[in-house]
């Protein structure tokens, strides 16, 4: 069986904070009060949800009007297996719903107790409000049929965090909403190239494996699916030593979100002996003020039982104590 490239999960997630501006702000504020507002468009149509600018004329809109919490299904589709984050976590219908008093349809979920036969176009539905509305489109938990709603409340996705809350203890339900929080969490499978995978597997054995570009002859580590100057995969394998030099570096003094190393630390370009391109790594084992361009360094490997298919097997690089490389020997790598 041919060798397969390595892959691993790549999960990204952030709770986005969205300022909503005055028009949507009034809409969100009303939702927190279990009311729905629409906006009157240039042509007199009432848009729900409100739009800030008219789809026909691009004019700013700001005449907000109350509409009902009940309306009619215009179209629907059935979801047998809800995806993460969707409003109803049992089989449900997505629906375009025209609320009474609105001229456009709102997209939302309709819970029929899991029954696809209980939803139809023209059906009357009403809002099932979230238990604790915060001023967010998710304050509408979902819709249910006006006639014969399900006996039990549908399981729902977790409510979004509230961006602003009314003053505690005041019972003030008129506080205006200017920001909503929207968590966005996605899961991917990230794959390394075949060439990079060979290098990563060698790392698991404690070896540093580069490849030479068959066109320009330069030694790349990591190897490349396409040599950046020639556009062809690197091929001939070249085993490199774990010694080299610092070409250039910076001292990171600043903490930031997602940081994995406590500052201050040195991020340096390390050019291994015999390689034609440096890579970024850490330099420890001396005061940050002692790190120099041209300094000779050697890899400090983690204990063998911690090795896997990653350059992190090298905990950091540290000075060898040898004489610095002359500037002219690496000036063309800067």
């Amino acid at each position: 069986m041919p060798e397969q490239p390595l892959s691993a999960p790549l999960d990204i997630g952030f709770d986005y904070t969205r300022s909503v501006g005055p028009v949507l702000g009034r809409f969100m504020t009303a939702l927190a009060q279990r009311r729905v507002l629409g906006v009157r468009g240039s042509d007199g149509r009432v848009h729900v949800p409100p739009v800030e600018y008219d789809p026909g004329t691009a004019e700013p809109l700001d005449e907000l009007v109350d509409v009902a919490a009940e309306g009619t299904v215009v179209s629907w589709s059935w979801t047998a297996d809800p995806l993460p984050g969707q409003p109803v976590q049992r089989p449900f219908a997505w629906a375009l719903i025209r609320l009474d008093g609105a001229d456009t349809a709102l997209l939302h979920a309709v819970d029929t107790g899991g029954e696809p036969t209980s939803v139809r176009s023209g059906q009357r539905v009403r809002i099932r409000w979230a238990d604790e509305p915060v001023g967010h489109i998710r304050d509408i938990a979902y819709f249910v049929p006006v006639t014969d709603p399900p006996a039990d409340a549908a399981p729902t996705a977790p409510a979004p965090p509230a961006a602003t809350s009314p003053e505690p203890g005041t019972g003030d339900d008129t506080a205006s909403v200017d920001t909503v929080i929207t968590p966005v969490h996605l899961n991917y499978t990230h794959s390394a190239s075949l060439e990079e995978s060979r290098y990563l597997r060698a790392l698991a054995d404690g070896r540093l494996l580069g490849q030479r570009c068959p066109a320009c002859g330069k030694v790349y580590i990591p190897p490349r699916g396409a040599c950046p100057t020639c556009g062809v995969p690197t091929t001939d394998e070249v085993e490199l030593p774990d010694t080299g030099i610092v070409t250039t570096f910076c001292i990171v003094n600043v903490p930031f979100l997602g940081q994995r190393i406590k500052p201050p630390y040195v991020g340096a370009y390390i050019l291994l002996d015999g390689a034609d391109i440096p890579f970024l790594h850490l330099v420890l084992g001396c005061e940050v003020s002692e790190v120099r361009m041209g300094m000779r360094v050697r890899a400090a490997w983690k204990p063998r039982d911690e090795w896997s298919t990653t350059l992190e097997n090298i905990a950091h690089f540290e000075p060898t104590g040898e004489a610095d490389a002359p500037y002219a020997s690496y000036a063309h790598h800067l």
Binding site: Q86, H136, I137, R138
Partner: peptide
């Protein structure tokens, strides 16, 4: 991103 995406309606359902 304000009134629709937070519900995660997928492209097939749309």
């Amino acid at each position: 991103p304000y009134t629709v995406a937070p519900l995660w309606p997928d492209s097939v359902s749309i």
